[in-house]
Design a protein around this nucleic acid. Sequence first.
DNA 1: AAAACAATTGAACATTTGTTCATCTATGCG
DNA 2: CGCATAGATGAACAAATGTTCAATTGTTTT
Lengths: 120, 120
Amino acid sequence: MKKSKKEICEIAYVDRKKVVSVEKKMKDEPTIQLLAETFRALGDPTRVKIIFALSEEELCVCDIANLLGATKSAVSHQLRVLRNMKLVKYRKDGKMAYYSLDDVHIKNLFDECLRHVEEM
Amino acid sequence: MKKSKKEICEIAYVDRKKVVSVEKKMKDEPTIQLLAETFRALGDPTRVKIIFALSEEELCVCDIANLLGATKSAVSHQLRVLRNMKLVKYRKDGKMAYYSLDDVHIKNLFDECLRHVEEM
DNA sequence: AAAACAATTGAACATTTGTTCATCTATGCG
DNA sequence: CGCATAGATGAACAAATGTTCAATTGTTTT
């Protein structure tokens, strides 16, 4: 062991100051988990299509299913994932459920990702 | 079959005009796939931490591993996922590889998601 | 040249995920 | 009422995912 290198878990620090500095700023574990869960909720082609569709129109489960060529059951399952992460909201009208994006961040998030993808 | 309802795949359209309208605007399949893959790449706690860390400092694999308390192998695998989606880039300096965020969209994307999560 | 080290990679394994199928609730209509 | 429809949900199964372990590449140092 010598100089600024120090063994921990069999791995040596290369720049300990930078590591400690980032460590201090690191978000807490629950926030990290929520971020990961939110991104994961968006990380499926079916759900991406749903998000895009809802950014254009408020739609019922039935019409989303038609749009995607998927079953109502599959769509309902996916909507629950999106609902859990507060990415979409819905209003009930009789036996219908009309879904839309939960807030403006979702569209921004989606558009920013689209910009990144289009530059690839 | 009657009025505006039409049976396709055993599902009826509720508002055919809205569905057709969204259908026209829908992004093509490759774009949808890229969007989903990009979000999925961000959808893991370890990778979220890596992205956050790299938004603060340029770091080598070793220091990232220390920061996260993970093995270099695990980090290297995750970095490949992020690299594949052009979320991070790296420069080689001798036997070290220094990673950083690929472009400004990544930080924006991350911050926008953080704002959403903090409002939950 | 040999040893040490940063990083990458492939195989293997347990865990998670998305869809299908069947079932269930609740609302609307004849 | 009786039945069809919109939607939600649980179980089940195949497919994808993240980590560990072992081995490899390429660079630096002695």
